[in-house]
């Protein structure tokens, strides 16, 4: 395998690891592995911080709304009607 292919493989592995950690689905070992790598790789460190800030922004800016007033009642009435037809 040439050097360029090795770099590509390394980058893929980092991308996958980074995603797992950002999404809270990494094992403790994978966490450690990423931490170890981030101390040595500036590109991945920037990528990590950027991805994390985008995820945080999505969560803080796009707040869930309540469902419209009356929707729950409409649904429950329909269900009661359906149930009483049986």
């Amino acid at each position: 395998m040439n050097k360029q292919n090795m770099e590509v493989e390394q980058k893929q592995a980092c991308t996958e690891l980074l995603q797992l950690v950002i999404d809270g689905q990494a094992t403790p070992e994978q966490h450690q592995e990423l931490e170890f790598h981030l101390e040595r790789c500036e590109d991945c460190r920037e990528e990590y911080l950027l991805s994390k800030s985008i995820k945080d922004s999505l969560r803080s800016h796009i707040k869930p709304n309540n469902s419209p007033t009356g929707l729950a009642n409409i649904i429950q009435n329909k269900i009661s009607e359906t149930a009483s037809l049986k």
Binding site: K11, E47, S53, S57
Partner: peptide, 26 residues
């Protein structure tokens, strides 16, 4: 994997964006 998107978008920039911009982008 070689797409180098991150180099031209900064964490500080993302933090400056407001809710509407994030929502519209999504």
């Amino acid at each position: 994997v070689n797409e180098n998107i991150t180099t031209d978008l900064r964490v500080e920039t993302v933090q400056h964006l407001i809710g509407d911009e994030i929502t519209n982008a999504l």
